[in-house]
């Protein structure tokens, strides 16, 4: 008998069965204003928020932040706002992507309780660029802001979007004597740009 069958047989003998699945969970209504809560949580995990009226405000914002933006290596899923400077051949070449300065990526659901932003795996030509980029900018719509993970997962389940990443702030670690260091191995900063009306 294969290991698979041996294990499943042992589990069939061991599993008690009979326990009903609980109904889907309904969270308590949030007390705070969603945008306020999102910003508070994002700051707490080392990220920053910019609220924009339209995506045209993005290019000046980033130029002010990185005055040498034009010389930097940039990948953007939103070329109308900021163009990609990386040659297309580098999109799937991890050796080239390791020198990526800035990834500007469209996100979907944003979660007020923890500042997580959903980025579908298919949003980028190579998944690694989300992590190899030195800095990450996420562009999200104000009306995609939801109270908790429950509302976010419900939407993902509904549209069958099961490959992707919840990203909350930059990479970080406290592994050296519990001292918090922002910029562990992935992006050193994470700017979330929230565009439009609620």
């Amino acid at each position: 008998m294969s290991s698979r069958d041996t294990i499943l047989k042992a589990l069939r003998e061991a599993a008690p069965g009979g326990v009903e699945a609980p109904a889907m969970y309904t969270p308590d209504a949030p007390a705070a204003d969603l945008l306020e809560s999102f910003e508070f949580r994002l700051k707490a995990c080392g990220g920053e928020l910019a609220v924009l009226r339209s995506v045209e405000e993005l290019a000046p914002l980033l130029s002010a932040r990185w005055p040498d933006l034009a010389e930097r290596s940039v990948y953007s899923t939103n070329p109308a706002a900021v163009p990609t400077s990386l040659p297309e051949a580098a999109f799937t070449d991890t050796a080239a992507l390791q020198h990526l300065d800035l990834a500007i990526v469209d996100g979907c659901e944003c979660v007020a309780e923890n500042a997580a932003v959903w980025v579908p795996a298919g949003a980028v030509p190579h998944r690694s660029l989300l992590y190899l980029a030195e800095h990450l900018v996420l562009i999200v719509r104000r009306d995609a802001l939801l109270p908790t993970m429950h509302e976010a997962y419900a939407r993902l389940a509904q549209r069958g979007d099961t490959s992707g990443y919840f990203i909350a702030g930059p990479s970080k670690t406290s592994d050296i004597a519990q001292c918090l260091v922002i910029g562990a191995q992935g992006p050193r900063s994470c700017l979330v740009c929230m565009v439009g009306d609620a």
Binding site: M24, C45, H150, A154
Partner: peptide, 27 residues
């Protein structure tokens, strides 16, 4: 179920380190 993940991703980091969620929750 996929939606059950909401329950566990809300509990895990808060219980482990006191963060609202880990920086990266990859699916």
């Amino acid at each position: 179920r996929f939606e059950d993940l909401a329950v566990f991703t809300r509990l895990l980091a808060r219980s482990g380190t006191g963060q609202a969620i880990t920086a990266y929750t990859s699916h």
